[in-house]
């Protein structure tokens, strides 16, 4: 399979083009899609290729998600675009009470092939209502699969898998990643949901991360390498279902771990990972597992404030040195 260097946005459009050509039940619904190509331009070209299947809506998040769900229950395979993950709050009933529960509470009568696309993350000076990382809320809601990709190839492979999945998938892509470029396979490319990737091997400490944390961690690992600390980097990619096997395999080699995520610390996914590691892998640990995360405040606007609140490369380096006692 040949690869080219393309952006995350191009990877999204490519996955959708391939899947929509393959399956005419797939459609995309949300605000600012047809003329604008999506608020981040990620759907450019699709309205022309698939007339009538890229559907503009009013500003009406409740009904955007609800209409995706209703269509999924009646034979279609929609992707709903929420503009910003922050706006999941306006459709919380449709996501958490309806999409997540309908299959279960009706005794498994129906499939729900629904992808909820929710760009998340800070770092753009977008302030408290356009910068959150909310994956924990949805991980804590049984019935939803939660995907947080980092690199363009992951975006393509995971989006393809999500579109083929018969359960509701909430797809958080950091909005700073839309322009990120990287090698992406041409043609059909599927990354199964629930499979983490070991993106760099190392024997001294395991860094568990996802989404934007992947890029911070990659930077940190370069610094750590200069200090003689070789980190193993696991990009979790899907948080629910979680690939704990890959985590365990790595920890049985490194005996140390640092969790990195952009979401705020308290009640974040890091807490779940640390709890699980301590209960299942305690005997393998040579140090407490540390978390690197945003501080527990809403995301502030002014650049020095925002930078202070978000996790940094230095935070990761510090944590990795602490757990390796170096």
């Amino acid at each position: 399979m040949s690869e080219r260097i393309i952006s995350c946005s191009a990877a999204i459009a490519e996955a959708l083009t391939e899947e929509m050509s393959r399956d005419d039940r797939i459609f995309v619904i949300g605000e600012d899609l047809v003329y604008h190509g999506g608020i981040f331009g990620q759907f450019k070209g699709l309205p022309e290729k698939f007339p009538g299947r890229i559907i503009d809506t009013p500003i009406s998040e409740t009904c955007i998600v609800g209409s995706g769900l209703g269509a999924a229950l009646t034979g279609m395979r929609p992707l709903v675009d929420l503009h910003f993950a922050d706006f999941t709050t306006c459709a919380m009933d449709e996501i958490a009470n309806q999409s997540a529960k309908i299959r279960y509470m009706f005794g498994g009568q129906v499939k729900i092939p629904l992808v909820i696309w929710a760009p998340d993350g800070a770092g753009l000076g977008a302030a408290a209502h356009h910068s959150q990382s909310l994956e924990s809320w949805f991980i804590h809601t049984p019935g939803l699969k939660v995907v947080v990709p980092s690199e363009p190839a992951d975006v393509k492979g995971l989006l393809t898998a999500a579109l083929r999945d018969d359960d509701p998938v909430i797809f958080f892509q950091h909005k700073k990643l839309f322009a990120k470029e990287g090698p992406v396979p041409e043609g059909e490319y599927v990354i199964p949901l629930g499979k983490a990737a070991v993106k760099r091997s190392g024997g001294d400490v395991t860094i568990l991360t996802y989404g934007s944390g992947f890029y911070l961690s990659t930077e940190a690992m370069k610094e750590l390498s200069g200090m003689g600390i070789e980190a193993e980097l696991i990009d979790l990619r899907t948080l629910k279902p979680l690939d704990f096997e890959t985590i365990a395999e790595s920890l049985k080699k490194t005996y140390r771990a640092v969790v990195v995520h952009e979401a705020c610390l308290t009640g974040g996914f890091g807490a779940e990972l640390v709890a699980r590691i301590s209960s299942e892998l305690f005997d393998y640990l040579d140090a407490p597992v540390l978390r690197v995360a945003a501080k527990d405040v809403p995301i502030p606007f002014s650049p020095p404030l925002e930078k202070f609140v978000l996790p940094s490369v230095e935070d990761i380096v510090k944590a990795a040195r602490q757990v390796t006692y170096r």
Binding site: I29, I55, T62, C63, V65, G66, S67, G68, L69, G70, A71, A72, L73, T74, G75, M76, P78, A91, E94, Q98
Partner: peptide, 11 residues
């Protein structure tokens, strides 16, 4: 309500 909109759209 939102779900029935989806059923209508699907139709």
């Amino acid at each position: 309500f939102p779900i029935i909109v989806g059923a209508g759209l699907s139709i």
